[in-house]
Design a protein around this nucleic acid. Structure first.
Lengths: 181, 181
DNA sequence: AGGTGACATGTCAGTGCTTACATGTCAATA
DNA sequence: TATTGACATGTAAGCACTGACATGTCACCT
């Protein structure tokens, strides 16, 4: 029951889209889910095959160019629900940014400031992207179904707050280092 | 040059401690670095062996009970410095919490609130732990060497801000869902 | 003397994930 | 008609990581 997050992400996308091919799902991973989870097609295709073997999805049809269209089954929906409701989010807490933050005090003041300023710049850039996504979502011309529109909004909000927080943290850290020297 | 974060973490700890055994480092991973990076002894021992082979660390002495004491070399210090100064923090962005956040809109309102409230509780608990660590660090009786005391403070601050942010996010999300129903 | 438990180091199987390789279809355009 | 490029699916090698297995030392307690 551990490390099945890819499975869950795929089930979630299939629920949202109704049905989709591996190719579609891979595209979704590049776009909508990207800030939250990553996976390449070489991971997605075998996982979909395993999920089909486990009865969580079915191949409804085969379209042009060998396109396989997957749909979530009742069993799949149950699995997703169970995970969402019952999964304790004890994340592995493995962040390169945090590791770098941890080690920064090993550097001298000017170097530390340089690293923190790179963090700052990076965060600022990411913030622009996420806020663009946000306004795009909230000024969508004609919403096609409520679930589709709302889907991913909470996570986007979380991402924006996260990025703002890192920005502020870097600013404060820079200020404090400068005050000490 | 990718995914060498375990190496970096070990080099950082060796720099801070002067020298340490694999066992000591494994203990450190359970404590100080835990919020930032995780690794078990089964990963640490082979990695130290590889690092020794690559000339980044040396076995200075063998103590009681087969205890091997590692020290960082000049080459190791160079590697660490290079990583800290030159590494672009393009984290893999793989967070189970964020994934759950992404999928919450698939649930109905009461269920969503339940999940968010679990997030909230979890964050609150973690916040208590981190703040206890913070005050413990800042009321340390007799600081043994400045570097040792400051080490990890930036990361702890980041962790606390992060946890507060998630808490606030969950609160706001709950409030918004309740307002809509 | 025997047992318990912390200290200390390792291996191994299995899974997750990345990068690169490999194959083939179809539509548009030069 | 040939070629390009998006569509579409897969496999395989290799590194990262987890959890379980395995071994042995030493100090302390009974």
């Amino acid at each position: 029951m551990r490390g099945m997050s890819l499975r869950i992400a795929l089930l979630g996308l299939l629920t949202a889209y109704g049905s989709a091919s591996g190719y579609d799902l891979a595209k979704s991973f590049e776009k909508s889910v990207a800030h939250v989870w990553q996976a390449g097609h070489s991971q997605i295709y075998p996982e979909l095959a395993k999920m089909a073997a486990d009865g969580l999805v079915t191949v409804e049809a085969e379209g042009a160019r060998g396109r396989k269209i997957y749909t979530i089954t009742a069993e799949g929906r149950a699995e997703l629900r169970e995970w969402l409701l019952g999964h304790d989010p004890t994340g592995p807490a493995r962040s390169e940014v945090a590791l770098q933050a941890f080690l920064i005090p090993l550097l001298d003041a000017p170097e530390a400031v340089a690293v923190l300023e790179r963090f700052r710049a990076h965060s600022e850039q990411k913030l622009v992207q996420l806020e663009a996504l946000w306004t795009a979502k909230h000024s969508a011309p004609i919403p096609e179904g409520t679930a589709r529109v709302k889907f991913g909004n909470l996570a986007l909000d979380l991402g924006i707050r996260q990025t703002r927080m890192v920005l502020k943290w870097a600013d404060d850290a820079i200020a404090e280092i400068r005050a000490q020297s």
